[in-house]
Every structure is written in C-alpha cells, then in structure tokens.
Simulated scan of single mutants.
Amino acid sequence: MVDRIHCASIVLILSSIVFLLSGILLITFSDSLIKKTVKKECQLKQGTILYKIWHDTPVPLYISIYVFDLVNEVEFLNGGKPHLIQRGPFVYREQRTKEDIRFYPNGTISYRESRNYIFDQSKSPLDETFRFNTINVVYMTLINYLHTQNVPDLFRQIIGTILSFVEKPIMQRTIKEYLWGYQDPILSILKKRLPQLVMDDQISVFASVVNEAQYETILINNGVGFDENHNERLNNLGKIERFNFSTSLSIWSNKYANMINGTDSTIWHPDARKDETIYTFMNDICRSVHLKYNQTHKNLFDINTYQYIIPNDAFANISDNEGFCLNYTMTNETQQLKCLASGLFSLTPCLHCKFII
C-alpha cells in the first residue's frame, strides 16, 4: 500500500511539473504564436481570413444623410435670413462589390468597386419621398457663370430668359430626387436649344459620384513578404500605391493636398498604436485625411479595439489645408486663393461643379 501511495505521489509530482512547464511554455510562446497567426491571416492573398473579409465584407455598411430644409423661402428671397431645419437621417444600406481584381508580381492588387444603395426605412425617421426646399444648384451655377465668364451675347440672352421664366433660386425636391437624380427644367430647355453645349439634363447630388466611382481603378499593397529594405510589407497593408494609375492627384493647388496617403479606409495594418496617426484616401471627396485615436472599445470576445476619428483640423481653415483653397478669378483677371470657413469643403475640383459640403 505504501509503495502504491509513493508511486502515485511521484506520478502526481511529475504531472504537476509537466503542467507547470507546459504553462510556462504556453505563456512564453503563445503571444508570438498569436502574432505569427495574425500576420499570416492579415495578408491580402487568396485563402487568408482578411482576403475573404476584404472581398466580401461581412459587416453591414450604412450611410446617414442629412439635409437642410429652407422653411422661409419667401422671406429669404426678399432679403431675410434663411431659417433652416435639419432633416434626417436618411439611412441607406451600402453594398460594395469589388470587380476586375488583378494580382501583380510586385505584391500589389488592383480592383474597381461598384456600389449599390438601398433605403432603410426602419432606421430613417422620414421617407425618401419627403420634400424639402433647397438651393437650386443649376440656377445658381448659371447665375455665377454669367457674372464671372465672358459669355456670348446670344447665349447670355437665352440663359437670362430661361432663368427669368422657368426656374427660381430655390427648388423643392424629394430626398430621392435630390440624391439619385431628376430632370432639370433649365437644362432640359438648354439641351433642346443648345445641344452642342448641353447634352445631359439629369442632375443628382450623389448618384453621379457613385456612378463615377465604379470606373476608378485602385492599386494597393497586399502586405505580403518584405520590401527591398527588408522591412515587412505588412506595415503598408492596403496602402494605395496608385489611384487611376497615378501616384498623386492634380486637382488641388499644391503637392501636399494632391498626395494620396493611406488606405481606402476599409483595412489597415495590424498592431495599430494609440499614438499613431492613420491616413486614408477618400475618393468620394478626392483627398486624403488623417485619423487620430479617440477611445477604446471591447468587442464580443473581450478584446480591446481602437476607435479612430477624423479630427476637427482636417477641414479647418488653417495653413496645413491651404492646398484645398480654390483659385478664383478676380475682376482685374488676377488669380487669388479663396479659403472657405472651417468645417466647409468645396468639391468643385473633384466633381467639376460648384458643390460645398
């Protein structure tokens, strides 16, 4: 009996030592094993978890749109201050589909991305058939055109007559028309009378951007392997190398504003730090922006996740953003930069029309 107890004690001691050593080894190597697994799966190559998520995003994407409704149109047109009421959000489910995906030997991937938007009534307090008063973009654009450009007399007379009898500076449209398109009465007449100048009478705030985006080609870093300096390419995972076959833009007034920095905002490299400034290129507004750490959240698996937001200075009227100021022709025909107030951003160079957000 004593021998059995002695033998059992030895077995128990040996088992404890084995478990202790296993625990030490697990603590020692688990972190490196996890990091190795993360690095392996966080590469944009077929078969990895990240590639599946990147190709077919499992996370639902939503876009919330707000508009300002002018409720004192008559008073405003008579010189009074505008009374605006914010309406919304009008929430749309966004579906993205990556197309024409191509892999290159230098560790890059090119693709195009089409988007589809479905109105989500359950998340929206108002229907997209809601009508609101807003600035008549075509009317105001033509007025500005007549005042700033050397227009032939015949063309000026035709436009002036149409503006006087057809439309007003304020228009009423449904949310659906405003975002996704409507036939503009002014352009419809000009299309018939001046077909050589006006070929399309459809106007939309958002549809034109969405339609144009599907033809944009993006070339990104796949994060696989090492670069020529023996640095891990994973640190540049998703970084946009070229946008529409160019390494920079040419629409803004200096080279810094024209830079294409960061990713497309859907993926970033792993091991992001709180003190790190993250960059993303937003092709919808034709510019790069930086993001900074805001706060930490815990996900369903009790893992810390970092939230990064666009800081206020990204759209501030400061020297760093001077490149986004617009060139205006003065009365003496000289060029002068005009910067908008903080919080405003002109999409004129991006959309090739007068539009400010």
Rank of each mutant, 00 (worst) to 15 (best):
Y139I: 01
K123E: 14
R87H: 10
P89N: 04
N136I: 09
G88Q: 03
T57K: 09
L126A: 05
H83P: 02
L146M: 06
I159E: 03
F132C: 05
V91C: 00
N78Q: 15
V137M: 14
S114G: 11
R156H: 12
P58L: 04
Q86I: 05
E73H: 07
E128W: 15
S124W: 10
E73V: 15
T148V: 07
R115M: 12
P60S: 00
Y62V: 02
V91M: 03
R112W: 06
D127C: 14
L61M: 12
D100G: 05
Q149M: 07
G88S: 05
H147C: 06
N144I: 00
S124L: 04
K98G: 02
T57R: 05
I159G: 05
T148W: 01
E73S: 08
M140C: 13
N78C: 15
L126R: 08
T129N: 15
Y66C: 00
D153R: 01
G79S: 09
N116R: 15
E99R: 15
S114F: 02
Y117M: 09
L126W: 11
F68S: 06
L84H: 04
E73L: 04
Y145I: 01
Q157I: 09
F130N: 11
M140S: 15
T148L: 09
Y145D: 06
T97F: 08
S122T: 12
F76P: 04
Q95A: 12
V67M: 02
F103Q: 15
Y145N: 04
L61F: 04
Q121Y: 08
V59D: 13
Y104T: 07
F68W: 08
E128Y: 11
G160M: 10
F103T: 10
L61N: 09
T129K: 14
I158V: 14
I109A: 02
T129I: 12
Q121M: 11
N144C: 02
F103A: 10
L154H: 06
P60R: 04
F155Y: 06
K98N: 10
Y66T: 01
D120L: 09
F155I: 06
G79R: 07
D100E: 15
S114K: 13
N72I: 03
N106M: 07
V74Y: 13
Q95P: 04
E73A: 10
G80R: 13
T97H: 07
F132H: 07
Y104I: 02
F76A: 01
Q86K: 15
L154E: 11
F130A: 13
Y92E: 00
I63P: 02
S124Y: 10
P82L: 01
E94C: 08
G107V: 00
D56Q: 10
I143G: 00
